[in-house]
């Protein structure tokens, strides 16, 4: 492998991490929002959240990204492939994160939420100081797990011509007739990314344990 091969790995790693990172940043709060709509049993919106999650969950990453990239221009919205990838991964992350938040919300004991109301806490204070700290704590493992899945689904972006880690490895292997070394290098990069996420999980969990009100 030459210098340019390593460069294409760096490029591939950046798009993998970039797409996943944006999807995480978008998906965590939006997923929480959807989960809260269902939890609060808000009539029409709760149902819409349910439909959204059911539909998105059943769509493979490759299919969704092609639908967005080739579909949206039909409605006059032209996209560059990277933006299409960001949108598609954010849509998926939102749906899966919604389910993670929702299972934490189901396990949350409503009586202490009502106690917070009786003690004069406004809706926002109840959310910020009673609900969120507890569901955040119980959601972290699931959210981090979902992040690792995002990273591992990222090769899907190559179907619309983007270069990710696996695609970089494949291209180099095809040129050098030695597919294994670049694939192993790609694998190593995935391992590093996932290890970093697991480290993040550990840090978040320790921080929570030592956090105050």
């Amino acid at each position: 492998m030459n210098f340019y091969d390593y460069l294409s790995f760096v490029y591939g790693a950046l798009s993998t991490v970039g797409v996943s990172f944006v999807a995480i940043i978008v998906g965590i709060p939006l997923g929480l929002g959807l989960a809260l709509l269902r939890w609060a049993r808000i009539p029409v919106f709760g149902k819409c959240a349910y439909l959204y999650v059911s539909i998105v969950r059943s769509c493979p990453a490759v299919t969704l990204i092609m639908l967005i990239y080739f579909g949206l221009p039909q409605f006059g919205i032209s996209l560059n492939p990277f933006v299409a990838a960001l949108i598609s991964f954010s849509i998926t992350a939102t749906a899966f994160n919604c389910e993670i938040w929702r299972s934490s919300l189901l396990a949350f004991d409503r009586s202490q939420y009502e106690a917070a109301q009786a003690f004069g806490m406004t809706r926002w204070v109840r959310f910020r100081h009673v609900l969120l700290p507890q569901i955040w704590r119980s959601s972290i493992p699931g959210l981090i797990n979902e992040m690792t899945l995002l990273v591992k689904n990222s090769p899907a972006i190559s179907v619309i011509g983007l270069l990710d880690i696996t695609r970089a490895a494949q291209r180099i292997g095809a040129r050098t007739y030695e597919p294994i070394p670049p694939l192993l290098l790609g694998f190593a990069i995935y391992i590093i990314i996932v290890m970093l996420l697991i480290e993040l999980q550990k840090r978040l969990e320790t921080r929570i344990r030592s956090a105050g009100i």
């Binding site: 004991d109 009586s111 202490q112 106690a115 917070a116 806490m121 204070v125 009100i213």
Partner: peptide, 21 residues
């Protein structure tokens, strides 16, 4: 059934409303 806030210490449970409300 008490309905204490399980993620707060005893002291924090007692302080929460005076501080936040």
């Amino acid at each position: 059934h008490f309905a204490l806030w399980p993620h707060m210490t005893v002291l924090e449970n007692v302080m929460a409303s005076p501080v936040h409300v």
